[in-house]
Nucleic acid binder design. Structure first.
Lengths: 210, 210
DNA sequence: CGGCATCCTAAGCAAGCGCTTAGTCAGTTC
DNA sequence: GAACTGACTAAGCGCTTGCTTAGGATGCCG
């Protein structure tokens, strides 16, 4: 598949994932912005660049968004809510600690591969947010932390996990999965679910009692 | 310790680590640049900002560097060479696979905590490099990949490691350690060597035959 | 002292930035 | 068909950007 076709696929995928963003031109702008931010970074992206991607004039952006920072803020909010939903769904799928950890880490890693474009933006462009928006997003990230920690504690209580440092190990696990978005390329050999399977396995090895 | 004192400490530490950058004003500029790039990102940093940090006029930067990109390029080169030296020294310290993996991952994770400021720049600002400079740096990063992979292969050959996917596990291990630079704060509870110890332990658990 | 090299600044240029303003135009409503 | 609405553009404003130019200060060497 050539890159143009892959781009179309990604736009279609994000259009489906973000179907609740309306009206359609606002959604198209949001998708254009997330792609531009992911490729060049927030500060290297111009509002003209975003507008051009959807075939609008530079002023068209401001019909739907107050500022460039609002675009980033919306992307971060939607992205974090989206991934938190995925995390919670994964955690609820099983009560067995090992399977739960597999689901949580596997799904979260696969999510970061599949949605590597928004994932890059919401992990590596946070510093461009205004302080109060950053605080809001940090709270969402903290919830992810708590969820992973709870999974580990659950396994320790049942005696199937041996985790001397739960906060540290939780941090490492989240860090590992989040960083998938940095190095993942669609053109690479591994599919998102392959990465999920590998990471789920590594996570279980890290904590399982031997 | 207040942040101003911590800043002074960091400047002193980087001044020692980069003592071979001369003359002194060029080194001071490089340190100011790496701090600014780490705090706000390459594109959000202005050359005026860098100059002001060392008490120079905006034009002072161009006495020592051709462009803002040259500053980033030098930082990336020095940073990668520095960390490669640390990695190789760690790998050479022992021939026992488990101890070697402990040394490699532990030291590399601790390096990313101690030098989180340059580490952030050389991992997350690479896209701002000109293409030929990016190619050069990518080659250095590939060497780290090979080193970690060789450590894993060494352990598998001796039967002490069980690694179904060596490239994938090597990638995950490097990813895990590199990402320390993203979340590490000097004000946090863990010292660099604590993070190194935790990560060395997690790495061994990930690959050890059971 | 003069000659020279090093290091730096004052001033500013051309280009590009985020965002605004005033107005156009298609579609809907009555 | 007149009145209104929402989506969009042409033009451009005020400011900042990376970088240049011309020249000044300082210290070293004979």
């Amino acid at each position: 598949m050539n890159t143009a076709a892959a781009d179309l696929d990604e736009v279609a995928m994000l259009d489906r994932a973000w179907h609740d963003v309306s009206p359609a031109p606002a959604r198209r702008l949001l998708i254009a912005a997330v792609q531009a931010f992911a490729e060049r970074g927030y500060h290297a992206t111009t509002t003209r660049d975003i507008a051009t991607r959807v075939g609008m004039s530079p002023a068209g952006v401001y019909v739907h968004y107050r500022s460039k920072e609002e675009l980033l803020h919306r992307i971060c909010l939607i992205g974090h809510r989206h991934s938190l939903v995925a995390l919670r769904a994964a955690a609820a799928r099983s009560t067995d600690p090992e399977q739960q950890l597999r689901d949580v880490i596997g799904d979260f890693a696969a999510w970061h591969a599949l949605f590597h474009t928004p994932a890059r933006v919401i992990s590596y462009e946070l510093t461009a947010l205004e302080p109060e928006h950053l605080t809001e997003i940090t709270a969402l990230r903290h919830e992810m932390d708590l969820l992973v920690r709870a999974t580990l504690e659950h396994g320790v209580e049942q005696g199937v996990f041996d985790v001397p440092d739960i906060p540290g190990t939780g941090l490492a696990l989240l860090s590992l999965t989040v960083d998938v978005a940095r190095w993942y390329r669609t053109s690479g050999r591994r599919a998102p679910e392959d990465i999920g399977a590998l990471y789920a396995d590594l996570a279980v090895r890290m904590v399982k009692t031997r």
